[in-house]
Design a binder for these strands. Structure first.
Lengths: 187, 187
DNA sequence: TCCTTCATGTAACTAGTTACATGATTAT
DNA sequence: ATAATCATGTAACTAGTTACATGAAGGA
């Protein structure tokens, strides 16, 4: 069976202890989703595939009347995960950003509109920094998983840098606009 | 007709002058592809759709026997592009990174393997910086399109920051390993 | 009582990539 | 010669999202 990165995401999640599909989603939304998003439409079918192939072991774990299945990583799953982590491939960091695309083409609008776009982008990054900071204490305290914290600090630094960059570019534009309009006024 | 971000990418490209599908791809691979990749499988059908809807105007532009169609932005296309750029939506910056995913789960491997992963990630970012630097002179000299250069500087700063971060993390790991092994030796 | 969270799932859809085919032109 | 680039296209595929359905449990 062919394992995709999304499969390994699931294996990795289960390496931290048995989880239901719901648990995985909840945890992923506070961690991996910032560099590898995942939806229920992938999680549930993929957990079944992984179970069929013996990488994970399903266990009934109902709470009262409410059904619940948790999956536990098998020996095979552990090995597959480790093999994947150490496999020396170099994959690109992929970025998709509609706002950056707008910025790239924003020569077709005036400075004021471009400055507003930059300010929106700055705010977006600030918001992201705030979100990441909110989960920092949890990530920090997670014993036995220092990597989560490392990755979080990376994201924090990255988005902080971007916030600064957009702020700088925006204020430069506004500054230039003020300067030229005062020149206009001085004429 | 519903326009997607990919449609606007094409309109934006044509705003810089009439281009064939091939031209668009070539230009995109040196610019937008770092934050919005695009393939022929999207370009050619989408150019036709845009032409049908009147956003672009196809023109036969064969070179010798070799067929060639260039597309020119229409008034309608220009307006659609401008409207899209100024439309005040806040979209997230999406990242997908297999290596970061590996790093996140790398608690399951030893320090040495993790350090190697970090070094590979550092090299990847360095390579990206080199690639971006190679196109810097072109982007800088492009008269009338300062935004391309702005975005490029952003990418350059971003990947430089990441290269430093991974280098720092890697050397910290290696340092700790050396320190602990010398402690072992000192016993 | 009603809202939120817990919990599982799938069908339909959208976006995007890969791999291929075809053939002219230009550079080595 | 022949390799690289120019140029257009599509069919098949893969990945991933969205929207929906169902219903129990727990807290306000």
């Amino acid at each position: 069976m062919e394992l995709t990165n999304t499969s390994y995401l699931l294996l990795g999640m289960l390496a931290k202890g048995p989880k239901s599909g719901y648990d995985v989603k909840r945890f992923a939304d506070n961690s991996t989703r910032f560099f590898w998003a995942i939806s229920y439409g992938q999680i549930y079918p993929e957990l079944k595939r992984l179970a069929d192939a013996g990488f994970v072991q399903p266990q009934a774990a109902a709470r009262g009347e409410r059904e619940r299945t948790v999956y536990q990583l098998t020996r095979l799953g552990e090995e597959a995960l480790r093999d994947w982590v150490v496999e020396p491939v170099v994959a690109p960091l992929e970025i998709r950003d509609e706002m950056l695309l707008k910025l790239f083409f924003s020569d077709v609008v005036n400075d004021r509109d471009r400055a507003e776009l930059l300010e929106r982008m700055q705010r977006r990054e600030q918001d992201m920094v705030a979100r990441l900071k909110a989960i920092e204490p949890i990530a920090k305290s997670e014993g036995g998983a220092p990597c989560r914290y490392t990755v979080l600090r990376g994201g924090l630094g990255l988005h902080s840098w971007l916030a600064d960059f957009f702020a700088r570019e925006a204020s430069e534009l506004v500054g230039a606009r003020v300067a030229s309009s005062s020149k206009e006024a001085g004429k």
